[in-house]
Nucleic acid binder design. Sequence first.
DNA 1: ATGAATATGGGATATCATGGGATTTTATGG
DNA 2: CCATAAAATCCCATGATATCCCATATTCAT
Lengths: 161, 161
Amino acid sequence: MLKFLSTTTNKVDIKGRVSVPALFRANIGPDGFQGIIAYKSFKHPCIEGADTSFMEQLSERIHSDFGFFSDENEALATVLLGKATQMSFDPEGRIHLPNEYLEHANITEAATFVGLGNKFQIWNPPAYEKHYEVQLEIAKVEAGKLGPIARNLSLGNKDRG
Amino acid sequence: MLKFLSTTTNKVDIKGRVSVPALFRANIGPDGFQGIIAYKSFKHPCIEGADTSFMEQLSERIHSDFGFFSDENEALATVLLGKATQMSFDPEGRIHLPNEYLEHANITEAATFVGLGNKFQIWNPPAYEKHYEVQLEIAKVEAGKLGPIARNLSLGNKDRG
DNA sequence: ATGAATATGGGATATCATGGGATTTTATGG
DNA sequence: CCATAAAATCCCATGATATCCCATATTCAT
C-alpha cells in the first residue's frame, strides 16, 4: 500500500489549477479513471485525495457482511462516498480545485501534497507545517507500539546536530 | 534481515548523483520497485534508506494496528510515509539526491553508505567519522556491561592482549 | 596480470511544473 | 430554445530539473 509517499508543494494558479505530483500520478496508472477522488477532510482544514481503488475498497467494506468496519467507520465511509468528487487530470497532469475546496483548506497560491500510503492530503503550506509538528508529537508516542521496525526510526529527539 | 552490510564512500557528482553500492543493489533484487526509499534521519544529520519491503511492512503495521481512520494511523503515516521519498536507480545504479537531502546531511562531493542490516545510512564522510568515534566509545562502555561474549569482540582496547 | 564488474563523467534527451491564450462547456436569464 | 457570461478545459510554450545513454576510469577477483 505504498501508492502515495513524500511531501511536495506546488503552485496554484489564478484559475485554481495545481499539478498533482508526478510520483502520485505514476501510481494511479494509465488504466481506469484519469484523475483523483477528493473530499473535504472531516478532521482538518485540508482536502483528502485517493485513487478509485481506495474508494472501491471503502465501498466493498461497507457492503460486505464480514464487518471490517466498526459502526463509526462505516458511517464515515458512507458519508465520504457521498461527498467525494472526481477531479480529472488535464493533459499536463493538473487538477482543478473548486472554490468550495480551496476555501475549506484556506489554499490560495500554493498547495502541499502529503502522501499517506493509500491516500494523500492537500494543505495550505503554512497550515501543514503547524499540523506536522502536532502529528510528530503523536507519532513519537505511538511509534513504540509498532515494534522494532518503527522504533528503529528513532523518532526521539535529535542529538547534537 | 542482513540486507545491507559494510561501509562504502562514493562520489557525488555536480548533478547530485551517487552510485548506490553494488552490494546494496544486489539485495534489492530484480523484482518490484528498482530503487530505494529514503528519508531524512530524525536523529542524525544523515539520510536513511531502505528497500520497499521495509516501508511496506511499516505501512501495513500502521494500517493494521490502528483503525482505518484513526488519529494514530494518520499521525504515523504523516510522519513516516509523508517524509519518505522514492529514489529510483538510473541504468548505472545511481540515485539522485535532491538538494533538501544533500543539505540535511551536509553532503557535497562524496557520500558514505553505512549498512545497518535492514536499512542503511548515507553520511557526509567526515561527519560519519566523528559519529563513528562516538558510537565506538558508547559501544565500549556498553560492552563492559555485557557478558564475556560481547567483551570478546575486542572493541578497540588493544592494550590487553 | 587480465578480464569483468563497478563507479564516474558529461552531452543529449525527456519529463515536470508552470503560465497564458484560445476554445469549449455549463449555468442562467430571456 | 437561444443568448450570454462565467467557468472549466484544451493546447502550446518555456525554463528548470531529472533521466538516459554512451564513453571512460577504477576496482575487484581470479
